[in-house]
C-alpha cells in the first residue's frame, strides 16, 4: 500500500495537469454548449422556418451522431481537408456541439413551459418581443432549465474522458499512467473515480446554488440555508399567508 501512496505522491503533478486539461475541456465545452443551446433553442421555437428548420437539422444531427465519432472527425478527418485543429479545440468543439444540441431541447422546452399567461400579460403591456423574452420569460425559464442543464454539464464532464483518444493527457489518461506506475488497477482507477466525483459534486453544488437563487427571484425559494440544507417544496407559490412576508416589508413607500 505504501508503494501505492508513494506512486500517487509522485504522480500528483501529472494528475494535477490531467485535472487541469479535464477542467479546460469541461469549462470550454459547457460554455460552448450553453451558447449553442440558447441560439438553437430559441431558433427552434421561431415561427419563421428559415430560423427553425436549420436549428432543427443541427440539433438532430449533433444529437444523433456519436460524440466519439464527432471527435474523430474534428481530429482525424478535418486534417484531410487541410484543417488542422488543436486537440483541446477539437475536444471543446465536439463536446460543445454534442451537448449543446441536447441542451437546446432543454432551453426550448423550458421556455415553452412558462405559462402562456405570462406571454399574454407581456403582450397586453405592449412589451417588445425581445424585452418580453429577456425580462419576463427567460428568468422564469432559467429556473426551470437549471437542473436539466446541470445534469448535462455533469455528463459533459464525464464525456471529456474520450479526449485521451485524441492523445490528450487528461485525467483519464493520467489515471491510466498511475495504473501503469503502480501496477494496481483497483487503486489507480479508484483514485480517478474519486477525482471525477469530486469535480462533478462541486458542479452539482454550484448548480443547486444557482437554482435556489433563480427560484428565490421568482419568490419560490426555500428560506435561506446552507448548501446542504434540506430542500423544502415551494410552498410560497400557493401560500399567501402573511407569515411568508418575512422577506421584505413595505419599505420604499413614500
Amino acid at each position: 500500500m505504501n508503494d501505492n501512496i508513494d506512486a500517487l505522491i509522485a504522480a500528483l503533478p501529472d494528475l494535477r495537469s490531467g485535472v487541469f486539461i479535464t477542467l479546460q475541456l469541461t469549462v470550454g465545452g459547457v460554455v460552448l454548449a450553453f451558447v449553442i443551446a440558447i441560439v438553437l433553442g430559441l431558433a427552434a421555437r421561431s415561427p419563421r422556418w428559415p430560423a427553425r428548420v436549420p436549428a432543427r437539422v443541427l440539433i438532430e444531427f449533433f444529437r444523433g451522431t456519436s460524440l466519439l465519432v464527432q471527435l474523430f472527425w474534428f481530429f482525424y478527418v478535418m486534417p484531410l481537408f487541410g484543417i488542422q485543429l488543436d486537440a483541446l479545440l477539437c475536444g471543446v468543439l465536439a463536446l460543445g456541439l454534442n451537448y449543446g444540441a441536447y441542451a437546446a431541447e432543454v432551453v426550448r422546452g423550458s421556455i415553452n413551459s412558462v405559462p402562456k399567461g405570462q406571454w399574454e400579460a407581456a403582450t397586453a403591456l405592449s412589451l417588445s418581443p425581445a424585452r418580453k423574452l429577456r425580462k419576463i420569460i427567460w428568468p422564469q425559464a432559467w429556473a426551470i432549465m437549471i437542473p436539466s442543464l446541470a445534469n448535462l454539464a455533469v455528463m459533459l464532464l464525464k464525456g471529456t474522458a474520450v479526449a485521451y483518444i485524441i492523445l490528450m493527457h487528461d485525467l483519464t489518461w493520467e489515471t491510466d499512467q498511475l495504473r501503469q506506475d503502480t501496477g494496481n488497477t483497483f487503486f489507480a482507477y479508484g483514485v480517478g473515480m474519486i477525482i471525477y466525483f469530486l469535480i462533478s459534486y462541486a458542479m452539482v453544488l454550484g448548480a443547486n446554488a444557482l437554482e435556489r437563487h433563480a427560484k428565490r427571484r421568482l419568490g419560490q425559494g426555500p428560506p435561506k440555508g446552507g448548501l446542504f440544507s434540506v430542500r423544502i417544496t415551494d410552498k410560497a407559490t400557493t401560500d399567501p399567508k402573511p407569515a411568508a412576508n418575512a422577506g421584505s416589508g413595505g419599505a420604499g413607500v413614500a
Binding site: A236, P240, N245, G250
Partner: peptide, 8 residues
Amino acid sequence: KADEHPTR
C-alpha cells in the same frame, strides 16, 4: 406592498 414579491 410595493417591494413585495407578487407570489406572497
